[in-house]
Design a protein around this nucleic acid. Sequence first.
DNA 1: TATATATTTGTAACTACTTACACAAAGAAT
DNA 2: ATTCTTTGTGTAAGTAGTTACAAATATATA
Lengths: 115, 115
Amino acid sequence: MEIVENEQTCKKAHLAIQDTLDVVGGKWKLILISILRNGPFRFKELSREAGITPRILSKELKELEMNGLVTRTVCDTRPITVEYALTDYSESLSEVIMAMHKWGTEHRERIKKEW
Amino acid sequence: MEIVENEQTCKKAHLAIQDTLDVVGGKWKLILISILRNGPFRFKELSREAGITPRILSKELKELEMNGLVTRTVCDTRPITVEYALTDYSESLSEVIMAMHKWGTEHRERIKKEW
DNA sequence: TATATATTTGTAACTACTTACACAAAGAAT
DNA sequence: ATTCTTTGTGTAAGTAGTTACAAATATATA
């Protein structure tokens, strides 16, 4: 008897999901990536746009940088500014981002219709 | 001047992402949904498979049920067993789940090759 | 009677996450 | 000299998430 296991039926599929969550899980990372898809942002802009405190933003950006999803560029301005931008590799997340964007939009519509 | 904003460039795209995270964000929900895609599970099976303590599993399942993603069925056995299964609506998350599964798998490959 | 099962819940402890606030560095502006 | 800017960090406090453990329920088994 041949056993066929594809992505959907594999019993250990959740391990791959877990790997993804290890990198972009949590409260902020996908939000930050989603914002950065509009182009590079400076630290303070990002903080205001996401509604995240500097303390946490700093930590999150460091982790995203370590995972090769974001670059940090110090600009030679006075005072110094720092620009954060997505890497090419982060483009690999576009399916995830777009799927979540689509679901969020449709789910909101569904909730509205319930009332 | 015409302003064109699609899903990708919309400055408020992260709000839709946020809506999604409000429902399936956190440490466990997508993992649980991913496991339940293999068919209905009983409480204890789910607890063991996900490596989640009963206390938290109970809370997570309640939230998934409230959001119409999971059903809870009490079976007339002795002792009573409870079966958790995905709803039809949860199928709407398949793009999100599959995109995350794919990314996790490919990202793991990429990490392996770095060494 | 004593023990075992499955599905929870209550409580307290513990860890992780997040915020608020102050402050540093390095000039620029007043 | 004083104040302002941006990008952070240090510290302490508060909130949220998680665990460990005991227990409740309802019944079956030894």
